[in-house]
């Protein structure tokens, strides 16, 4: 078998069959992947959650993960924050001609490892090859199905509610930006790429009626989630600068490149709005799960600055946290 992706790998011929059988299916799971046009699935219960997401990232491999683990965890998390238990994923891959097969294998292996860890099966997929220069090595789309064993009870957010995060913010975006900007880390910094389903189930089952809202803080970071929550609503979201868990490395890169950790992407962080009085107990529950060991209360819902997110700084002043219009660019001013 050739050791790079050739146009023929997308042709429908033997080369493609070999790729699917020997590389993709072999790695992602012979026992789960069904080769028909669709997978036929047994679904317990009636209500299901269904989502899809496409993944593109440069570089495709970064400290703490690669596009494969990202594609599994991202979709698992989209299901998990709805309160669903993720069960099945699809995996659709677009490969660029010339991609070394070893790189593809590493990506597939991390998909498999991430799926096994999160307890989901990859059950169907597709592969296409585009000519060299027409893609960025590899694009992955995953769709996911989840079920509700204990359906979440939805409550309105009210002033006095607490804002909780399950750990350090900005690690994923920082790890990726460092790769792009030729920065390195003396003690290492890994992407936080991780599945949130176990963590969220722990919270739902221990405090079934205290959760108001959950959202994974991916692109746009924590600040963007808080903007989404407060937009046109009769309350504001206040963060406390001193309680934000931020690794030194994330602070360092942010200062160097002139960007704000609150807007940096995460791939394993969930913002949870809960009843204020139950928040300390919820944080304790979260700490029992590896993905929640650094959980903290980082702010609260208030009557001030209604419709906006803001932060109380170390000197006790407030500053607004508006929605960003575009991605943050490294700057020198």
């Amino acid at each position: 078998m050739p050791d790079t992706i050739l146009p023929g790998h997308g042709s429908g011929g033997k080369l493609m069959n070999d790729l699917i059988h020997d590389t993709i299916r072999e790695t992602l799971g012979n026992e789960s992947i069904q080769l028909d046009d669709s997978a036929v699935l047994q679904l317990p219960g009636r209500q299901i959650a269904f989502t899809t997401d496409s993944y593109t990232i440069t570089p495709i491999e970064f400290p703490g993960g690669n596009i494969g683990s990202l594609a599994v965890n991202g979709t698992v998390n989209d299901l998990a924050v709805m309160g669903a238990e993720p069960l099945y994923l699809s995996c659709s891959i677009i490969l660029e001609e010339g991609l070394p097969l070893d790189e593809l294998k590493r990506v597939l292996q991390s998909m498999r490892a991430a799926a096994d860890y999160a307890g989901v099966s990859i059950v169907t997929g597709d592969t296409k090859v585009v000519p060299r220069g027409k893609g960025d090595k590899i694009y992955i789309n995953t769709a996911g199905i989840g079920v509700f064993t204990s359906p979440p009870q939805r409550h309105d957010i009210i002033p006095g509610d607490a804002i909780i995060i399950n750990g350090y913010i900005g690690d994923h975006g920082t790890a990726v930006m460092a790769e792009r900007n030729k920065l390195s880390f003396s003690r290492g910094l890994l992407s936080d790429c991780a599945p949130l389903n176990m963590l969220i189930q722990q919270v739902i089952q221990s405090y079934p009626s205290s959760i108001r809202f959950m959202r994974d803080a991916t692109r746009g970071g924590v600040a963007s989630v808080l903007n989404e929550i407060t937009k046109d609503r009769p309350f504001g979201a206040k963060l406390i600068e001193n309680s934000l868990p931020v690794h030194d490395e994330v602070r360092g890169v942010s200062e160097l490149l002139g960007i704000d950790p609150l807007y940096i992407a995460n791939e394993g962080k969930v913002v949870i709005i809960t009843d204020g009085k139950d928040a300390p107990g919820i944080v304790e529950e979260m700490k029992k799960i590896p993905e929640g060991k650094d959980a903290a209360i980082i702010g609260e819902i208030t009557d001030n600055y209604t419709g906006s997110a803001y932060i109380t700084t170390r000197v006790g002043g407030n500053r607004m946290l508006p929605l960003l219009i575009e991605e943050q660019l490294p700057r020198i001013c």
């Binding site: 030729k182 920065l183 390195s184 003396s186 003690r187 030194d248 490395e249 890169v253 160097l256």
Partner: peptide, 9 residues
């Protein structure tokens, strides 16, 4: 140079 665990040439 190093700061807060970040290294830069």
């Amino acid at each position: 140079a190093e700061s807060m665990g970040v290294e830069k040439t």
